[in-house]
Amino acid sequence: MSQDVQGPAHPSGEPETHRAADTTDTAGRTDTPDAEPEATRRDAGTTESSRANRSWWDRNADEYQHDHGVFLGDDRFVWGPEGLDEEDAALLGPQESLKGLDVLEIGAGAAQCSRWLAARGARPVALDLSHRQLQHALRIGGGLPLVEADAGALPFRDGSFDLACSAYGAVPFVADPVAVFTEVRRVLRPGGRWVFSVTHPIRWAFPDEPGPEGLSVSASYFDRTPYVEQDEEGRAVYVEHHRTIGDRVRDVVAGGFRLVDLVEPEWPAWNAQEWGGWSPLRGNLIPGTAIFVCARD
């Protein structure tokens, strides 16, 4: 690592800095970084964040699906590394109520959650910023509608969906979450539900390490400065944005939603895996995921 800067615990599974893998992009060009990115904390706006994260996920989608595909499954709806499954949690509503509903999955990755929804009779649309992630959705199959788009500019008519969901997709990576929530509200029908999971905000105060070194506070929980990885010319190659719990609640309300529930999954005894900064050790002591259940009245 080029700097001693702690990043949040993020779903890539890479602690602190992400070394971009040598891959071939969707146009057939080889993208080989010259050096490991520099980790820092600095401002990063909407355009820079979107551009950096689209490129990062395109470069790292293969590694991500290889490392975590077994845990995620091809048609499982898991809300985070703890392993809380929608099959049990029913945060979108009872399974029998999903049949026939139009559902938008935002930040769908390889569309595992959308396949689970389709198997229960819903009509999901899987949206992601990353072209390469959606190629993995095609590889796994299932005949789902796939859309490549930014969560802040959803390419759908008003009132197109009954539900919207996102398991660690989009929300942690955007500079303006209220703009995303406003768009989600726009495409939802009255009475619709919006459920999303993110890294629990308290994790930003701790090092992104799964062992004992990850149990001591190393930064201010109240420092909202984005975590940025940048190349040698100072261009962002990965950006993640911190919001406190209070910020998230206010953002939900500012986006036009009513907060119905805030779920903080406990670490289950059966889960022995380490995923980046998540681990049984940390999971039994501090929360790692926050799930916001919101309603459009």
Rank of each mutant, 00 (worst) to 15 (best):
F173I: 03
A219W: 12
V147R: 01
G152M: 10
A89N: 06
G83A: 09
E148R: 15
D128K: 07
G93P: 02
L134C: 04
Q135G: 00
P145E: 08
G107A: 14
A118Y: 10
R189A: 08
V178C: 13
G93R: 07
G107H: 09
T199V: 12
L91S: 05
D150H: 12
R185I: 01
L127N: 01
A137G: 06
G141R: 02
F181L: 14
Y221S: 13
A119L: 00
P155L: 08
L144D: 01
G191V: 10
E105V: 14
V147Y: 02
S160G: 09
E105D: 15
A219G: 06
L138F: 00
D158S: 15
A126M: 05
L215W: 04
D102Q: 13
D162W: 00
G169W: 01
S197D: 04
R193P: 05
L117K: 03
P177Q: 09
A170T: 12
A90S: 11
V147A: 01
G143A: 02
R186I: 11
R157T: 10
G141P: 03
R186L: 07
P212G: 05
P124F: 10
E209K: 10
P212L: 09
V184Q: 09
P94E: 11
G80K: 05
E183D: 14
A90N: 13
Q135R: 11
A126S: 13
C113S: 14
G109R: 08
L84K: 11
A111Y: 09
F173W: 14
F196R: 08
W116K: 01
P190E: 09
D150A: 12
L154S: 05
G211M: 07
L134Y: 05
V195D: 06
A137R: 00
